[in-house]
Every structure is written in structure tokens, then in C-alpha cells.
Design a protein around this nucleic acid. Structure first.
Lengths: 106, 106
DNA sequence: TATATGAGCAATTAATCGGTTGCGCAAATT
DNA sequence: AATTTGCGCAACCGATTAATTGCTCATATA
């Protein structure tokens, strides 16, 4: 199953999970308590997140803590980069228009 | 159909379409030429992108130009914001560790 | 040692997705 | 006026998805 980061964050529950464990590592049961889904459902989401390396596991006795792989989040940021350039340019254009309006006024 | 921006960019073809029309507005046929999918398939993707306001239409005769709504792209950026703070903090921690190593050396 | 608990694995199901095909309509082109 | 072209709409189909249920295994706890 070719899963990428973008598909992983498409699901709102998954985004919520990411938001949760970003603050501190948690076990599947602990995460599930924050939603009204079953533990298994959460586990599946976690599996997907692990698969595309947005999240990693850390076994501790019989409990498994899930924690955010911050580095992987940057992949999304990297994709946005190209558009950031564009939207900054558009703002610059707007600035130009505005300053032209000013200089034309008097 | 409750569609959000994240679901919209989950599809690789859709991301490619966004990348294309970011540079210049295009018609469905023109876009379809860049992929090996049918015009209708592209049209469906465009419909989804319009639905969640990542893209808007501009009729020109019988042709419809699709162009990027740059502002909406920022919504993704906004979501990343909270994690950006975290990953910067982690790097700062790393910096601290590194500088401690340095000062401990001599 | 017996029992309770945390968690992964597998099978099933309903819903959704991405794509194709066929249609009709309006604007260009001849 | 007749034809071509651009495009949205609707129906359909196979693949994928998210969630449920039932199972087993290993680690705690009594």
C-alpha cells in the first residue's frame, strides 16, 4: 500500500491524533479515550501513521507509546514552499498596485 | 459532501493540478493534456478543488479557466504552524545538547 | 498460578473514491 | 444553418477506506 504523508493527514481523526501526541507520547488506549471511537480504530490510524513515518512507536513493557516524527511533518511544509513563493509574489504585486495608486493620486 | 482542504490535497493528481494552475490559469482540456487521464477525470478533480475553494473558475466564452485560490493554501500552512513551533523547540533542545558537549570537551 | 489488561492481527461490511462512458448544452467555426 | 468543440452532469464499476467484531499473545496483577 503506497501511502504518503498527504493521504495520512487527509483524515480528521488522524490529524487530531497527530495534534495529541505532538504534545506528549501516548498509548493507543489513552488516545482512544480522547475520541468516541474504538481502540482498534485508533490503532489502525496509528498503523497508517507509522507506515508513512509520521509517527513512531516505543515499546515500554506491554504498553506501546506513539510519538510524533517531527521531521516528517516538514515534508508537507516542503511542498507548500513552492506556493509560498507565489503567494508572496502576489502580495508584492498588490503592494506595487497600491503604491502606484498613491503616486498617481497627487 | 463535507470536503476539506486536506482531503483535496491527498490525491497526487490533484496536487499536480494545483502545481500546474499555480503558474497560470488553465482550462480542463489543457490540464488533461498534462496527464494521461481523461478530461472528465480532471474535471472531477477540479470540481472537488472548487468545492473546497482551493481553486476558482473564470468563464471566458465557452472556456472555463481554473485558477488557484492562494489564500486557501494558507489554511494548510496554518495547521502546520502549531507543529512548526514544536519542531523548532526540538532543534533548540538539540542545540543545547550540542553546546553542552562543546563546553564539556575541554 | 489464575486472571485481567494492553495491544496487534484478520475477516467482514458499508461507504467513499477515482475513473470510464454516454449524454446534452452552449459557444465557436465552417 | 450545420458541424465541431469545450465542458458539465449522471450513471455505473472496481478499488480503497474506515470502522466493527472476534481472535490470540504477552505482560502485569491478584
Amino acid at each position: 500500500m503506497r501511502r504518503d504523508v498527504f493521504q495520512a493527514i487527509a483524515d480528521p481523526t488522524r490529524r487530531a491524533i497527530i495534534g495529541l501526541i505532538a504534545l506528549q507520547a501516548m498509548t493507543p488506549n489513552a488516545i482512544a479515550e480522547h475520541f468516541d471511537t474504538s481502540r482498534q480504530a485508533v490503532s489502525k490510524h496509528l498503523q497508517i501513521l507509522v507506515e508513512c513515518q509520521l509517527v513512531k512507536q516505543e515499546q515500554q513493557g506491554r504498553e506501546i507509546y506513539y510519538l510524533l516524527e517531527v521531521a516528517k511533518m516538514k515534508e508537507i511544509d516542503k511542498w507548500l514552499e513552492q506556493f509560498r513563493k507565489i503567494w508572496e509574489d502576489r502580495f508584492n504585486e498588490l503592494d506595487t498596485v497600491l503604491s502606484n495608486l498613491k503616486t498617481d493620486k497627487p
